[in-house]
């Protein structure tokens, strides 16, 4: 059984999905990549936008989410913590 993710891990997975798509992603792709229900995805997206980690843009009627500098900083910080934790088996 897969380990239940905590909130910070979900946020990391969402931001990483956007980063892997060269910094911008369609909502449907994000829904698929983040493995969340639509309702939960919207809650998280709202929170991420509120905290300035992602932005929303619309091109030709197509909505996309964009990773901000603050979002990149979050990924960097989270990666650092993960490496440190792994090194001590935490």
């Amino acid at each position: 059984m897969a380990k239940r993710r905590n909130k910070l891990e979900i946020i990391y997975d969402m931001l990483k999905s956007i980063q892997d798509k060269r910094g911008e992603i369609k909502p449907t792709h994000l829904l698929y990549k983040s493995n969340l229900s639509y309702k939960n995805l919207m809650l998280y997206v709202g929170e991420l936008m509120e905290n300035g980690l992602i932005e929303e843009k619309t091109d030709d009627g197509q909505k996309r989410y964009i990773l901000t500098i603050k979002g990149i900083d979050y990924l960097v910080k989270y990666n650092e913590i993960r490496k440190f934790s792994d090194s001590f088996g935490l």
């Binding site: 980063q19 990773l67 500098i69 990149i72 990924l75 960097v76 990666n79 490496k83």
Partner: peptide, 22 residues
């Protein structure tokens, strides 16, 4: 090593996503 490795990594990723900078 973790700090430096991560810094390098962030610089590379920051450049890639440079278009997002305001």
């Amino acid at each position: 090593m973790i700090k430096m490795g991560n810094k390098k990594n962030s610089e590379i990723k920051g450049t890639k996503s440079g278009k997002k900078k305001k």
